[in-house]
């Protein structure tokens, strides 16, 4: 563990807290993409299967359970909670996310660290996470204005993998034989996708105005 990865994990956790706060406080999920939330739930379920096979640390286990539980809770809320589900922007959340699932799974079959079910699913979860935010960014663009909590959610989510990049640089410099190309390249792609959104988020913060994305 190092300060960069800890910062990344805490920022990731914060993004989920912000999202849950928004849904709990407003009893609304307007502006949130259910498809992105479902992709994230799939990412965690695929990546954290090793809960049953490996023990890394208490911290690791607790965080995995928290991420799985919270992502499933958000999906449940948006689909089944009587009040929250009414505010879901179904007509705007139209990204064809099944192509993302299919494409990243095929990539995982081809590009993995070991051709075993667990490693294929791990690689799949890494690739899928890199692009999971796309439905949300498309939804943000279509709905135009972004409320504070949604903006912060996306910001923290993007920042977390950026911290991981610093973590990987740190580990590369301090650990012997640290080469994790799949995670590093995917992490860079993932952070890069957020960069465009960050730009508009920063501009609106600088001008102290409500975040507006180009149509």
């Amino acid at each position: 563990m190092n300060i960069f990865r800890l910062a990344g994990d805490m920022t990731h956790l914060l993004s989920i807290i912000v999202l849950l706060l928004k849904i709990y406080a407003t009893k609304s999920c307007s502006g949130i993409s259910l498809k992105t939330q479902e992709l994230y739930a799939l990412v965690f379920l695929a990546r954290y299967l090793d809960l049953f096979t490996d023990f890394i640390s208490v911290y690791n286990t607790i965080m995995k359970v928290v991420f799985i539980a919270s992502s499933l809770a958000i999906v449940w809320c948006m689909r089944l909670h009587p009040l929250v589900k009414r505010s879901y922007d179904k007509e705007l959340d139209t990204f064809r996310h099944y192509f993302l699932i299919g494409g990243t799974f095929v990539l995982a079959l081809v590009l993995n660290e070991k051709f075993t079910l667990q490693e294929i699913l791990w690689a799949f979860s890494i690739y899928l996470e890199a692009v999971a935010i796309l439905p949300q960014l498309v939804l943000l663009q279509r709905s135009g204005n972004v409320d504070n909590l949604t903006g912060q959610y996306v910001f923290f989510l993007g920042a977390y993998r950026a911290f991981y990049i610093l973590n990987w640089i740190y580990r590369y410099l301090t650990e012997p034989r640290f080469t994790r190309w799949i995670a590093c390249v995917s992490g860079i792609v993932q952070t890069g996708i957020y960069a465009d959104f960050f730009y508009y988020y920063f501009i609106s913060w600088k001008n102290n105005s409500k975040l507006k994305l180009p149509a």
Partner: peptide, 10 residues
């Protein structure tokens, strides 16, 4: 690559 604890990150 040692088995088991390779994926030690979240």
């Amino acid at each position: 690559v040692e088995e088991g604890k390779y994926h030690d990150e979240l």
